[in-house]
Nucleic acid binder design. Sequence first.
DNA 1: CGCCACATCTGCGAAATCCGCAATCAGAGG
DNA 2: CCTCTGATTGCGGATTTCGCAGATGTGGCG
Lengths: 160, 160
Amino acid sequence: MASRNADPSGGTPQLDSVSLAIIEQLQEDGRRPYGAIGKAVGLSEAAVRQRVQKLLDQGVMQIVAVTDPLTVGFRRQAMVGVHVEGDVEAVADAIAAMDEAEYVVMTAGRFDLIVEVVCEDDEHMLEVINRRVRAVPGVRSTESFVYLKLKKQTYMWGTR
Amino acid sequence: MASRNADPSGGTPQLDSVSLAIIEQLQEDGRRPYGAIGKAVGLSEAAVRQRVQKLLDQGVMQIVAVTDPLTVGFRRQAMVGVHVEGDVEAVADAIAAMDEAEYVVMTAGRFDLIVEVVCEDDEHMLEVINRRVRAVPGVRSTESFVYLKLKKQTYMWGTR
DNA sequence: CGCCACATCTGCGAAATCCGCAATCAGAGG
DNA sequence: CCTCTGATTGCGGATTTCGCAGATGTGGCG
């Protein structure tokens, strides 16, 4: 192996170009065999297996089935913008602890926090947004965007 | 062959409880063996295999590796709210055609459309949002929320 | 420089899993 | 009753996964 990749980034776990390539393979097909991935990235089957296991253990990636909840049925989904006063990260943690929150991100802009929630029905959503989320200390106000239709959902950022 | 997009004839395929159970299994671990899934849902290995293949072909679910692009490195990410005049769906399709758009959803609320974009750097993001997106006919205005930190990302709505 | 510690990669059998196929089963009509 | 269609099952045989031992490489340190 000639050189380790330059990784000037600070803080995050260091990923060399080979691990990136492995992730790209698995973004195309999460069940692709280790042997095939090995041929594609130039590693042995065993080495790929070890790297994948490590990436999973470290939480860098996860291999899962993803669906459109609205298509699969029974549910109401919404994006919620949250205005926070005080410790944004603490509020984010509190909201992230809720089962109904699928996606929680801290942002720069008019909202301090953006949360995607998945609920059983309208009543459930009302309860989650208007009671549980707004009850979190530090939450000043929220604004909701109920999903009407999911038009695109991709996980192949590395492959273009 | 890469999986194409969702099924042509719009209608949502009927999903019985067994298929739902299979999806839940794969949401916990996308590489779980068919035999193990079969034991869990009460079906033979071959039957599970065929159902999974069908779900993938229909575009109901996809099995992929997911990561936090910000953690993996080198990228700027943002959520963009879009105000549309005219045919919302046409605008959604136009934006969904862009590689940088990972997630496009039609919503009810102040925004007609919410788009998640992944970019190489600030300049790239500026170009995508301020030129390409706003150039789409029907886009009245946009509002951006740059990601600072991803706090939670789950795909296990079925398992609670 | 020599040597050890630590991490990664490779090569292999053995065991488990995947895959294709033909037969079987269940429900809807004619 | 018979046929058609779609789903399920039960097999081998081909592949893949898994665990482990040995080889390789890099960095620290006396």
